[in-house]
């Protein structure tokens, strides 16, 4: 434990947790070093590429630019959070279906950002998708497949919602 470490308590993927964090750690270091979660990974380190995306109180943030100590009292979600009902969610299924990745390094960030996009805008145009995901980089350049995957995920979610409505 280094000088000035602080104990923080927060909710991580639905579970109440606590951790000792040095004040200069960022959220990615906290998730990797204390919880063994490697879905959020630091790539550009400047908030530009989206590989380190995590959700804090439901809002997408760049984990590389977010001080871990400030996660105290918040609700943190990562790509490791299981979908409701277990298994993969619509976005993950659509990414697989469309082959929307090659090496997969950027995929957790794209999955989380695509979910947020569809939460805010269930029926995005191609322009909306490009605009919302402009802060996520895929060095394998699977952008056309990613855009198709988001469109497919939007359709899958609508189908799911329609089925849920019928059951109600």
């Amino acid at each position: 434990m280094s000088v000035g470490s602080k104990t923080i308590r927060f909710t991580l993927n639905g579970e109440a947790v606590g951790a000792e964090v040095p004040p200069h750690w960022n959220l990615v270091e906290l998730l990797q070093n204390r919880f063994g979660l490697y879905g959020a990974r630091e790539s550009c380190g400047q908030g530009l590429c989206g590989c380190c995306t995590a959700l804090v109180d439901g809002r997408a943030v760049s984990g590389c630019l977010y001080l871990a100590a400030l996660a105290d009292g918040t609700r943190v979600e990562t790509v490791e959070q299981p979908a409701a009902g277990g298994g993969l969610d619509a976005v993950q299924k659509a990414f697989i279906e469309c082959g929307a990745f090659q090496c997969g390094f950027c995929t957790p960030g794209f999955v989380l950002m695509s979910r947020k996009l569809l939460d805010e805008n269930p029926d995005p145009t191609e322009d909306d998708i490009r605009h919302y995901l402009s802060g996520n980089l895929c060095r394998c350049a699977t952008y056309p497949e990613i855009i198709e995957a988001v469109k497919l995920a939007a359709r899958l979610r609508k189908k799911r919602d329609a089925t849920a409505d019928k059951r109600r």
């Binding site: 908030g47 530009l48 989206g50 995306t53 809002r59 997408a60 943030v61 760049s62 630019l65 977010y66 950002m113 947020k116 605009h131 919302y132 402009s134 802060g135 996520n136």
Partner: peptide, 12 residues
Amino acid sequence: SRTLSNVRVRNV
């Protein structure tokens, strides 16, 4: 605001 940096930076 819509073209300012990216969604994650604007959130914080």
